[in-house]
Design a protein around this nucleic acid. Structure first.
Length: 518
RNA sequence: GGCCUUGUGGUGCAACGGCAGCACGCCGCCCUCUCAAGGCGGAGCUUGCGGGUUCGAGUCCCGCCAAGGUCACCA
């Protein structure tokens, strides 16, 4: 636990009351990068003084998310293997059991800096300590007059399990673990005077504090998990919805649970998730796990998030962890809150996808699809590589191919009216005539591969007197996909297979015959 | 409400007190079987508002406005 004097030690100290938030990921990144930049150590610990809301499952998931991000802590020496077991990571409930905080509380009571208040213990502020001033590495000197500082609880009463409060526990932990720099969210800035006062009372050297601005929604509200519940409520408000108990999206909910949810009394995860699945509501990504599931890659995600509040001082925008480790500095952290812009994140992600070697893209896509869209893997079989290649240039995320290419797995039910008119029915049904002609030509294509299909279609549009390939490609697209958009037409047919292609052409022609005679 | 902090094109960020620039997005053109990708070009900021200091202010000072944080036996 002892560390070299002068060595930089940073830490990330989330409370395990949920999953890792994207803002938390940025905080962890900054703390990690600062330690790396100065050859220091990045630590992890869990702040679980709120026993009721903390859980092992949550801590475990956070550890996994950090591992995915590549922000592994070294508790507590450089070069030590990263902790993978929860038991390896310090947490306040455990340290409390060892009596560390109680000892400090007794010490503060003995010195007259703290006193009993009911079954809780308060730390004396106000005139007892006087004004408090500290320097923040981002916000500068922060001065708080004594009259604005009230005594605060450092040990909770019976209801809180006699646990230390967060304020006492952070200060003790940061001291005990030798943290030299405390990098954390701006919401703690106003609390920091309390922490500084505690350090002073205990005769400990204060760490350097650096508070980071918040990440906001486009609307201006703070980006939080509640946004998901909000998205579901908004949807339900705009659509007819009957409040009753039942199974929603595979989750059983009582009428009361739904009512509380709708009236903002609860943001239950089950309700949000169940109702979203039931109605196909797209939830905004808030957690690291959300972005991962949506198919964002680690590097662009970290890159984008790093830029939301920090920049290297010039116009360079694209960089990775190595660059952060070499160039990150606290004095270039922004003071103003920033708005999360999904379009820019998507652009970063797309650039990363475009820059990938095709084999790597295929591997990553396959992994992602195995987890989230197994139907495609089953359907495409050994053609998956062709599918991956077709979508590398068209995807902003790993899940885009599933949306853009869903027709490969499922024949179109709805046909885009505009596409039908433009490519099939216009000019006395010219497109439909083209399809009829293709219906006769395509069965003879052998082998059914992209090159042969292409050669056949080239001949077809010339025989039909068309101006270019679009003559045959567009009617085919509409028949096969229900839209005017797909990858190159030869690849589209090859992936679909001969029988499926012919079936869909036939069905499309029948549809329009029926419509005509009606 | 008290206290603290922050305001630069739609968004994220630059700019020793000295010509307001970059990226994403948006629009147009080229390429092209569609969508992408790629190439070329364009619009958009009197730097939240009003004063002041200065030869000169996005930058320094004062006031106002707006936004965020905090004022818990949550962290």
């Amino acid at each position: 636990m002892a560390s070299d004097p002068g060595k930089i030690v940073t830490r990330f100290a989330p409370s395990p009351t949920g999953e890792l938030h994207i803002g938390g990921a940025r905080t962890a990144l900054y703390a990690w990068a600062f330690a790396k930049r100065h050859g220091g150590v990045f630590q992890l610990r869990f702040e679980d003084t709120d026993l009721a809301r903390s859980s092992d499952a949550s801590a475990q998931r956070m550890l996994e998310d950090l591992a995915w991000l590549g922000l592994m802590p070294e508790n507590f020496g450089e070069g030590e293997p990263p902790p993978t077991q929860l038991a390896d990571i310090p947490r306040q409930s455990k340290r409390h059991a060892d009596g560390r905080y109680d000892a400090i509380v007794e010490q503060l009571k003995a010195s007259g800096d703290a006193y009993d208040d009911g079954d809780a213990v308060r730390f004396r502020m106000g005139d007892h300590r006087g004004d408090v001033t500290f320097d923040d590495a981002v916000y500068g000197t922060v001065h708080t007059p004594a009259k604005d500082l009230e005594d605060f609880v450092i040990r909770k009463g019976e209801a809180g399990g006699y646990m230390p409060t967060f304020h006492l526990a952070v200060v003790v932990d940061d001291h005990d673990f030798g943290c030299t720099h405390v990098i954390r969210g701006q919401e703690h800035l106003s609390n920091t005077a309390k922490h500084a006062a505690l350090c002073d009372a205990l005769g400990w050297q204060r760490p350097v504090w650096a508070h980071t601005p918040s990440i906001m929604n486009p609307g201006g509200s703070k980006m939080s998990k509640r946004d998901k519940a909000k998205a579901v409520r908004n949807y339900l408000k705009q659509h007819p919805f009957e409040v009753k108990s039942g199974v929603w999206g595979g989750i059983a909910l009582t009428k009361d649970e739904i009512e509380d949810f709708l009236s903002n009394k609860s943001d239950g995860l089950g309700q949000t998730q169940g109702l979203a699945t039931e109605f196909g509501i797209e939830l905004p990504e808030i957690l690291v796990a959300d972005f991962r599931k949506s198919g964002y890659l680690v590097e662009p995600l970290l890159n984008y998030v790093a830029l939301l509040g920090w920049n290297p001082g010039d116009d360079q925008e694209k960089f990775g962890l190595d660059f952060m480790a070499a160039h990150f500095s606290l004095d270039r952290i922004n003071k103003a809150n920033s708005t999360f812009d999904r379009a820019k994140l998507a652009a970063f992600n797309q650039d990363a996808i475009l820059a990938m070697p095709p084999e790597e893209w295929e591997t990553k896509l396959h992994d992602h699809f195995r987890q989230h869209h197994p139907g495609f893997i089953e359907k495409l079989g050994d053609q998956f590589g062709v599918f991956a290649a077709a979508y590398q240039e068209r995807s902003k995320t790993l899940s885009d191919p599933a949306t853009l290419g869903r027709f490969f797995v499922k024949a179109p039910v709805e046909f885009n009216a505009k596409a039908v008119k433009k490519n099939l029915t216009k000019n006395e049904g010219q497109g439909l005539q083209t399809l009829s002609a293709l219906k006769e030509i395509l069965p003879g294509v052998e082998p059914w591969d992209a090159e042969t299909i292409r050669a056949t279609l080239e001949r077809a549009w010339q025989d039909l007197g068309g101006p270019h390939m679009g003559q045959v490609a567009q009617p085919l697209r509409v028949a096969l996909t229900g839209t005017a958009v797909s990858p190159e037409i030869d690849a589209t047919l090859a992936l679909l297979g001969k029988q499926e292609t012919l079936d869909r052409i036939e069905k499309c022609l029948q549809r329009h015959e029926a419509a005509n005679s009606a």
